[in-house]
Amino acid sequence: MSALAHAPTGSGQPASPPPAARSGRHRLLPYLLLLPGAAWLFLFFVVPLVQLAAASLYDPSGSLSTGYTLTWAVGNYPTALQAYWPQFGRSFLFAGIALVLALLMGYPLAYAIAQKAGRWKNLLLVCVIAPMFTSFLVRTLAWKTILSDNGWLVGLLRDVHLLGPDGRLLATPIAVVLGLTYNFLPFLVLPLYASLERLDHRLLEAASDLYASPLRTFRRVTLPLSMPGLIAGTLLFFIPATGDYINAELLGTPNEYMIGNVIDSAFLVRLDYPQGAALSFLLMSAILAVVFGYLRRAGTEEVL
């Protein structure tokens, strides 16, 4: 969002001539460059969004066969929320737990690749990205095999008594959270890596020279300096993870369904467009609220 907002004014270098001295063509150029992207966004984001907003206010008694009328039925929203608040809560809970797990794995991983990997850096980066070469769906199906009741993982966990003799992983909340963690991990690791890679090693030396223990150096220098990547990474992880429905669909049962599954079925199975649209908007505003709340707390000017 910041890139878009700054693009036209991005000429603030001291070397550039004052704006008054520029010709009209030069002043228009940034906007001309924006045009294709803006047109694309308008046609395929703004227009459908308005359409979706309208659909969320259709008369709920309509159907595909009888047709819908726009009756400004604001009541669609409380109705939808009342019916599906558990799935809403579950979406944020699962995505939140998955985010914590991904942070615990992803931060050390990104740090190691950026600062310690040396000549293995590129290879390790490829390893992080490599799963993306296969489809999201196929990878999640593979997890189905890994977590299956007859799989080696469940067998191992039963042997060490972390799981009861009848315990299982597949079709439990654990499976869904693990799937989310795995599928969105690269989105967290890559921006974090980019931030940590720029971290000047000499600043860490300076901190230790100034009486900061390794832990304090991390807390006072490494962490604040990796904040932009951390924020970008958590958002790129959390937003799609919250709206995801594949993991719950393939690795869980209806008891693990998230809001994405409900929207999916509203549009494609139950053909209840007003409700699907209303749920979509509720999800969008909930995510926006969480993101803005988070950015205000994290308080970095670079992202907002």
């Binding site: 000047d200 000499r202 600043l203 030396e205 300076a206 901190a207 230790s208 020279d209 100034l210 009486y211 900061a212 223990s213 220098v221 604040p224 300096l225 904040m227």
Partner: peptide
């Protein structure tokens, strides 16, 4: 001794000021 335990301080060539 680890650097943070030494009564010694350094002015670095690159200054290494904390940008944040």
């Amino acid at each position: 001794l680890r650097p943070h335990k030494r009564p010694v301080n350094t002015v670095f060539q690159s200054y290494a000021l904390f940008p944040h």
